[in-house]
Design a protein around this nucleic acid. Structure first.
Length: 283
DNA sequence: CCCGATTCCTGTAGGC
DNA sequence: TGCCTACAGGAATCGG
């Protein structure tokens, strides 16, 4: 997808596939690396970055890098870090001589001269401690199921939607319902399943939810693969955060013809957010 | 509990 | 050219 294909002002946001791609991109790069120093250049993210990062992490070693929903969990021998990319965050591994950029808020100095940098212009993300039992951290405790690890995703969504009256898109965006689906993939999955994203979620049949569950998994897993191929963007000389390129069917394509039925793609703002759907084949 | 509105923030684009 | 405004969005929080 090309940037000019997007609706004006639209930008690409880290959703589950982008976070997973980030995880894959840094996991083996930092595993086993000793942390020599941590510098917090700006601690004012969505939550205050803890003041004891450097004190605690100095001399420790990175271990596994895991993901839960859109959160990254960076294990170290001194404790586990919880990182969220918000809507403009990125993590990059760079050589120490690479010039720091505005909005590089947290920098881990690794042995051997490389650095892990957390970059986030809008500061909606966070870097904090995950605690002794990350699964019980307040930000992780109530998260819904991982969509790519559920065999019966459609059934789960059907069950959780009964008796509720919000729009399907807003239902899918609720992290307590399903983890890691943002506005882009909610719209894309609804298109693939042939369901209008403004349908009331409690009035959609089990059969249609089953198709939707498959669509969510298909869209997310295809995006993970595409995200993997574009990770190279992160190390381009211009240092741009490398928003991942995808081929969207509806998102940002208002006014264009649907690839499935030649109907018109519409954009409707609901709840301060854009819905994109085909007026022909989504019911 | 349910659900819509508001809030945080900055880069970008469009209007004048 | 430059100023001003609107808008994008994850998720916590508030209020009806």
């Amino acid at each position: 997808m090309n940037c000019r294909d997007l609706q004006k002002g639209a930008i690409l946001v880290p959703e589950l596939p982008e976070v997973e791609t980030t995880r894959r991109g840094i996991a083996e790069q930092i595993r086993g690396c000793r942390i020599e120093e941590v510098v917090v250049r700006n601690s004012r993210l969505r939550q205050q970055v803890p003041g004891d990062l450097d004190e605690r992490l100095r001399g420790s070693t990175f271990q596994e890098t895991k993901r839960r929903a859109k959160y990254l969990l960076l294990e170290t021998t001194a404790g586990e870090l919880l990182i969220h990319l918000g809507m403009s965050g990125s993590l990059r591994i760079v050589a120490e001589e690479e010039q720091q950029r505005t909005h590089d808020h947290v920098i881990w100095f690794l042995e051997g001269g490389r650095q892990l940098r957390y970059h986030d212009p809008r500061r909606f993300g966070l870097v904090t401690w995950a605690g002794d039992d990350p699964s019980q951290h307040p930000l992780l405790r109530d998260l819904g199921p991982e969509p790519l690890e559920q065999e019966q995703l459609g059934e789960i969504l059907f069950d959780r939607s009964r008796g509720r009256n919000l729009r399907l898109r807003d239902f899918l965006l609720d992290p307590k319902v399903v983890a890691g689906v943002g506005n882009i993939y909610a719209n894309e999955a609804a298109w693939q399943a042939g369901i209008r994203p403004d349908r009331r979620c409690g009035r959609i049949s089990l059969q249609r939810y089953q198709r939707l569950g498959e669509s969510i998994q298909d869209v997310l897993s295809r995006a993970v693969i595409q995200g993997g191929t574009t990770l190279n963007d992160y190390v381009q000389p211009d240092g741009e955060p490398g928003y991942f390129q995808h081929h969207f069917e509806v998102y940002g394509r208002a006014g264009e013809a649907c690839s499935r039925c030649e109907g018109l793609i519409r954009r409707v703002v609901k709840g301060q957010r854009s819905l994109f759907f085909c007026s022909g084949c989504q019911k």
